[in-house]
Amino acid sequence: MLNFVLKRLAIAVPTLLILIILSYILMYAAPGGPFTREKALPPQVIANLQARYGFDEPLWKQVVIYVWNIVAHFDFGPSYIFKDRSVNDIIGQGFPVTLRYGIISFVVASVAGIGLGVVAAIRHNTLVDYFAVGVSIGAQVLPNFVLAPILVLTFTLWLGWLPGGGWEGGEWRYVVMPVLALATSYMASIARITRSSMLEVLTSNHIRTARAKGLPEAKVVIRHALKPALLPVLSYLGPAFVGMITGSVVVDMYFSTGGIGKAFVDSALSRDYAVMMGVTLLVGILYIVFNLLVDVLYAWIDPKIRY
């Protein structure tokens, strides 16, 4: 097991390097640059900017300097658009915000999704099942950019219960709507995966045996059916967790949370290379870590799996 984890971590290093190099090349291949302005900048100003940010070096050297600064100083460079902020600064301010609403969303989506899926499977082909399937399909097809305005209209304008946006350090009233907007569609996917996987497990031999020896149904479901049924859910939850804690551009834009989700889109559109690289790496590392964690959990849940 330890060997497996170490091997996976060792593979992560070249994976990240490839990610950096590919992202760098793709960034440079896109037309325009961080100093493209509607009012064109004079050539000498562009030259000064390029010198300041090291764009006058050859591409390979830029990549080497970039990687070296990260490895040696944990410095992801300055933002080219937010002139008085560094990438560390931007991620340092935005990531705790998305981490907070992301983790809460994850808990909400998992608990509600698994609960809904299990209930639907147990009460297969009853009104309860139809209701659960209806809810999860409805939640799945409702994109968060539609859900967010509906939530604000309902909770802010009509009921007057919650503020329409802002973050205020993550006070609960500001967290409710971002969490609902983010968690809903994940919840729907989790519910559907849980339901179908649970249905499959419920017809398997070991469940028939468990029922045959007279175990109460609750015990059959919780002790014997749930664990194997969660395996496919688990492989979905790993990436979903990363997706949620790295935020959502819709949530950040609509609710003015100041989270990191918006930085993805903004940095790509404004060609803020350093921020783009920073958030890409952040997501890359998180994916590697959580995929590994899922694999380890797999072995723990399913004794048939050995690494």
Partner: peptide, 18 residues
């Protein structure tokens, strides 16, 4: 100064008195 990238969201918060 509140940053709101969406004009509809800004208007809603204006109507809500924020």
């Amino acid at each position: 100064a509140v940053t709101i990238n969406d004009e509809n969201a800004a208007w809603t918060r204006y109507v809500a008195g924020e």
